[in-house]
Simulated scan of single mutants.
Amino acid sequence: MAGNGAERLRVALIIGSTREGRAGGRVGRWFAGLARQREDIAPDVLDLADYEFPVCYPCAATPQMRRFTAAVARADAFVVVTPEYNRSFPASLKQAIDYAYDEWHAKPVGFVTYGSGSLGQYAAEALRPVFTELHAVTVRNGVGLDLLAGEPERPDGDGGRARAVRAMLDQLVWWGRALRQARDQRPYPV
């Protein structure tokens, strides 16, 4: 999709798993590579494994918390890359999401989920009400990967994965531009 002369959308790609031996880094790099091919997106990878967040929520934000929250504030839109753990998403992701509040408002969120058999779709469904509570808009289409099938090593064998990525990013860009323009014109009411 061409950029139509409009400023590129700043999209934070949040890799939500911090487990040792995780697939999240590989999935995140695969998706970031596809996002970088688009002229309408400027991706910024926020890998939660690169942050040293406190074990317990502190009284005052730490420098790492402030760094993450500032990156969320700069973004126009988000893509959350997450595994499905026990029909939900990782605690590391919930902890990071909770560090910000106003920074999520009136911005779109897309999901790249992965799992074994379910494509990680339960993680996306568990995240939708979380982001709704944060006044964010989740896009309808997402990308699901089945790690038992060897994805994302061969994600486009039939073209279906490429279509899913394109549809989700097209929706994210549409919402991202519309909401950025709306935020520029007037503050979001809470």
Rank of each mutant, 00 (worst) to 15 (best):
A2E: 14
V165E: 12
R180C: 03
F131D: 11
A70E: 15
R87F: 12
E7C: 06
V173W: 06
E133C: 09
A106P: 00
F68M: 05
Q121G: 03
L93W: 09
L9I: 15
T62S: 13
A124R: 09
V190R: 15
R66S: 12
D158N: 11
R36Q: 14
H105E: 15
G5T: 07
Q171C: 06
F53D: 01
G117R: 04
F68D: 11
A32G: 02
W104K: 09
I41K: 10
A60T: 14
A12Y: 00
I41S: 07
E133W: 05
L179A: 09
P63C: 04
G24K: 02
A136C: 12
I41Y: 09
Y114P: 00
A73Q: 15
R22N: 03
F53V: 08
M65H: 03
A124T: 01
P189L: 01
M1A: 12
V137M: 15
Y122A: 09
A167G: 05
V173I: 10
V173Y: 13
R66K: 14
R161D: 10
R67F: 02
R22K: 14
L119D: 03
G5N: 11
G160D: 01
A182I: 06
L9Q: 13
V109N: 05
D44G: 08
P43A: 11
A49R: 14
Q181H: 13
V190F: 12
F31H: 06
Q181P: 01
T113R: 01
S88Y: 04
S88E: 04
A2K: 13
A77H: 09
A75P: 10
A162W: 05
R166H: 15
I41F: 11
T62N: 12
